[in-house]
Design a protein around this nucleic acid. Sequence first.
DNA 1: ATAAAAAAGGATAAAAAAGTCTTAAAATGA
DNA 2: TCATTTTAAGACTTTTTTATCCTTTTTTAT
Lengths: 145, 145
Amino acid sequence: MFFSKGCEYAIRAVIYILNETAKGGRIGVKSICKNVEAPESFTAKVLQDLSRRKVISSIKGPGGGFFLTEDQANKPVINLVKAVDGDQIFQGCGLGLAQCNEASPCPLHYEFKPIRDQLVKVLSQTKMADLASAYSKGTFFLKVE
Amino acid sequence: MFFSKGCEYAIRAVIYILNETAKGGRIGVKSICKNVEAPESFTAKVLQDLSRRKVISSIKGPGGGFFLTEDQANKPVINLVKAVDGDQIFQGCGLGLAQCNEASPCPLHYEFKPIRDQLVKVLSQTKMADLASAYSKGTFFLKVE
DNA sequence: ATAAAAAAGGATAAAAAAGTCTTAAAATGA
DNA sequence: TCATTTTAAGACTTTTTTATCCTTTTTTAT
């Protein structure tokens, strides 16, 4: 809808990781993908990239896997989204006009602004950990049961 | 941003068509594309499709071209958007969950809802003709001058 | 040391979106 | 009727997104 496939997979993966490693453990990409219904190799790429960008953490070898530090878990979701998708969603004219700004605003400029602002607001005030705690309450499912 | 390239081109094209044919004339795809900075053949496809779906009108032959009837000009922009892009933007879970609804809502479900609703509202209450009248006032440009 | 487990990296493939080109059909006017 | 203008249709190419596979590196445990 708003995000790329890779970004969707990443958010779901993070929710799962946080819940599986509440006790400080790590979890492998195979297990993650099975549980969030995401393609394995593709999602692995995205997670590796997020790890490189310090949005999540990873450790190789037996007993290794992906996890989030306390600090990372308390960062807003928008960080992850921007790391994966960049900020095309958050900027640029809705009609694709080369020249659209306050000085010469497209006819939907001021209508789109609050929509975008609201999206930024939601993603900025929601922390990774918040997503995970909703999941732990069992109110929704990461895969069809 | 929210729309596909084809959809952006189509909106821009409609604005231009409405303004060029205020007096009931028609305008060719070549002239349209030159003036809204859109790829010609690709945009032609989109416009032809919109014509088939009765969102806009067209007539072949010399003196022919694209135009909108009074009725078409007064339809909301959301009709055009749905004709080109379908309604994926307006529905589906933001996290791509197979199972996301009021009964088991994803952690961003209620946060995304007003955003989407607002998008639908704006596109429903803005008529094609509204976009064009903003353009005729010269407050924005369809191509870099 | 060696085997096994895991992420990391690179090359490749498939699918979808975006864009081009060529020909056909329709309409018009001479 | 014939040439011209314009949309319509279809096949094709390119680019981007999504996805897979294979190899390498790191780490751990035996």
